[in-house]
Write a protein that binds this DNA or RNA. Sequence first.
DNA 1: AAGGCTATGGTACTTTAGTATGACCCTCAA
DNA 2: TTGAGGGTCATACTAAAGTACCATAGCCTT
Lengths: 136, 136
Amino acid sequence: MKKTILVFGLLILALLLLFQFGKYTIISGDINIEIVISVIAVVFFFVGIYINKKSLNTQTSAAVDIDHNKIKDLEITSREYEVLKYISEGLSNKEIGERLFLSESTIKTHVSNLLLKLNAKRRTQAIQIAKNLNII
Amino acid sequence: MKKTILVFGLLILALLLLFQFGKYTIISGDINIEIVISVIAVVFFFVGIYINKKSLNTQTSAAVDIDHNKIKDLEITSREYEVLKYISEGLSNKEIGERLFLSESTIKTHVSNLLLKLNAKRRTQAIQIAKNLNII
DNA sequence: AAGGCTATGGTACTTTAGTATGACCCTCAA
DNA sequence: TTGAGGGTCATACTAAAGTACCATAGCCTT
């Protein structure tokens, strides 16, 4: 945010300088008008590119955000969702249990429920389905 | 491609018109120089945004393209790669075998080799690693 | 307070996945 | 032609994954 304000401040400054420079050179007749206009055009062309790139970057980085409504629709509980995340990271049931301080049995129960809710036969298929639904 | 040429043609035309317009108005003294410069600045600002958006769009749509060099580096063969794709779609070894008209044993061999080459312990982990490497 | 839901786990079982090893065939380059 | 690499397949095994069923406990809600 602070950066944006700084950039805009500098921009306005540059614009004012250009005005003054434009007036001066034209009145004194040192440089012809085409060059001044060209410089301004090029500068603002790149300013446009820069501004646009910044706004698009922040947009694309958070582009595929999670569809929380879909998670609720599927009646996936928070515990199950945690397990789903770990599955998509390639962990085994035992490893997930260790990370959540739960027994492997409990993870198996959660996984079984997840597969039912996601209508998947295997955990690999669950990953694929979950990604298509934008819930992971 | 044709569109790009058209756009650039129109741009050059617009630029020339601006030059003429700029010279005329300044000589005749109808409009002051600030307004001319402002118009040019604004126009090229938006031209910059437009051009940038176009180039970024074509880039982001094909953004995550497959890193074929990485596949070669890892010495993943074409058959193994086919299997990898099916794994990421959530198929079982038996199902992959059916799709490729191979026995389950062969798929198991390919999967084992894949896990070694991708340095994964499980097929789910292989999916995760492969996605991070941009090879699927 | 009773019933429903979630979370937790255990046992017992079946099914997949994965490893190890060996074998055969084919192709292509040295 | 010989050897390396890729592809195919089998057997035998261990390890995960997944299913089914049951049980307990802690919640909210009615």
